[in-house]
Design a protein around this nucleic acid. Structure first.
Lengths: 129, 129
DNA sequence: CCTTGCATTCGAGCGCACTCGAAGACCGAG
DNA sequence: CTCGGTCTTCGAGTGCGCTCGAATGCAAGG
């Protein structure tokens, strides 16, 4: 039985500004936000978790539009909805994998360049793997 | 002794449009681009390599402004310039590491969610942490 | 009573990195 | 001579994701 959180609190706990929280809500990225009798947003711990996850998706490069779709589906009870939800996550996971692979590759190249300290064209070529 | 490449060729070989290649040049992201006697851009294999590397930097999230700085430094012979160049690459490498770490973390969370197939709040709570 | 905090709606602005298009010229090949 | 590809310069448009501010209102707490 936790006290509901005001927008300020949620902002503080998630690092997302109040302005942006309202924007997220308006943009359909949030799960439903109940109001108290004063019409103020009454967030719960679930919202904290939701925002944390949303930030992961965003930081992972998921587009707002996708997050919106995903959020909308959390309101669905249908089988199809659940499948779609899962599909989105799986697709995102795959993208994540690819990006990590690419970044890792970039990193490798960079390491060599930094370690070598000289331009790659000055490095004597060895037969390529 | 390779034939110099026209802008079309470089575009084809790098996947960057001619328009964007001109933009890159004007924006100071390129190494010097010589012209033939017709005033047309005469690229070399070095440009192919440069653009490839530049794309790595960009895909790794390096800002245009930074790339510009880096490109400018490749024209420098000074010690300080070389040190700065190296510093940029090292800093970028560090950023890359951090991003990979973060993405990997996101991926893990996602894997659990996808594998579980159910919302985390529906999972029986064990004593937290 | 007055201040504070949050509410709503609206629209503008920003930073980034392209992306496009137009206009007009050049120049070599067919 | 015409055509195609390139040149230059210019400015405007696009998409994304905020970010900010203004205006106006309400309700509780000091």
């Amino acid at each position: 039985m936790t006290e509901p959180l005001g927008i300020r609190e949620l902002a503080d706990r998630t690092g997302v500004s109040a302005h942006t929280l309202r924007y997220y809500e308006a943009a359909g990225l949030m799960i439903p936000v109940p109001r108290d009798r004063r019409r103020r947003r009454a967030y719960t711990e679930e919202h904290v978790r939701w925002v944390a996850f949303l930030l992961r998706l965003r930081d992972g490069g998921m587009r707002i539009a996708r997050v919106r779709e995903y959020a909308a589906l959390t309101r669905t009870r249908s089988q199809a909805g659940q499948r779609r939800r899962l599909a989105i996550l799986r697709a995102h996971r795959d993208e994540l994998c690819e990006r990590i692979a690419r970044l890792t590759d970039h990193l490798e190249v960079l390491e060599r360049k930094v370690a070598g300290g000289c331009a790659p064209d000055l490095v004597p070529k060895r037969s390529r793997r």
